[in-house]
Amino acid sequence: MKEYLVKKAWQLIPTVLGVVTLVFIVMRLIPGDATSHMAGDNLSGDALNAMRERMGLDVPIWQQYFNYLLQLVRLDLGTTMVTGQPVAKLILEALPVTFLISVLTVGISCLVAITLGTLAAFTAHKGKKLVDSVLTWITMLVDLMPSFWMALLLMLLFTLTLGWLPATGSIDYGDPLGLLRRIALPLIVLCMGQISTIARITRTSVLEVLNEDYIRTARAFGAPQLLVVFRHALKNAAMPIITVAGLAFGSLMNGTVITEFIFSIPGIGSLLIGGIKMRDYTLVQSVILVYSMLFIVVNMMTDLIYRYMDPRVKY
């Protein structure tokens, strides 16, 4: 365990350096710089050069890269080029809401999807094709609906027609009930996307386990059918489900860009998109750096849960 963590920590260094360098290069390969966005419709020529100078874009690229690395070594994420705000502060402000939404999405999706998936597998195993196909079809249909379209439909229904949930508003952690109402619609949209994937994986792997000898043995001993399925079968089918849920959590943490945009949520996805749009190199580099570290941590946690679930797993 300890060895594993130490090994992983060492691997972090080249990974982070690689990410930093790659993002640095890619950002500069995209045509245009921060001034091109600021230019809008009415600036050009000398005005743009003045701006470029102010943002330090006039120094050679290798020097910009070196300065950036030096800054990272000092554990300083710097300030945004365009708006002069400390990047670390922006990220810390954007992270909680994205984290909350990601945790709730994965939690709710797992709860619903595992139940549905297990039921589908169980009925399929019993030869009741109808329930299985209905469940499969529903999850597929939900999966096919574009999230922006679904978001709009949900808003029309829950906000305008029923008046139950707000479409916008500020994120206020002091008012948990209000906060829950505020993020309810984005949660539904995001869960829809996750439930179908997790349910399908659950169905497949539970179905596989249900054919194992020990399940038949358990049944032969007279254990209640649902107990066998939910306790013995599901536990043994858990590994692929954990993998998918872990990946889902990682990618949700990395910003739920469209959902955040539509529901005006000031999360990490909004921050990144804003940065890319403005070509704010410092902001984008730092956000992606934090992203990749988060992803690595989530992966490590998934690995640890593996070990915990199945002691046979060795690293």
Binding site: M155, P166, F261, P266
Partner: peptide, 19 residues
């Protein structure tokens, strides 16, 4: 000033009295 980037969302927020 409440930041709502999407025009559709803005129209719904207005109709719902959020702004």
């Amino acid at each position: 000033f409440s930041i709502i980037k999407d025009d559709d969302t803005a129209a719904i927020a207005l109709q719902n009295g959020e702004v």
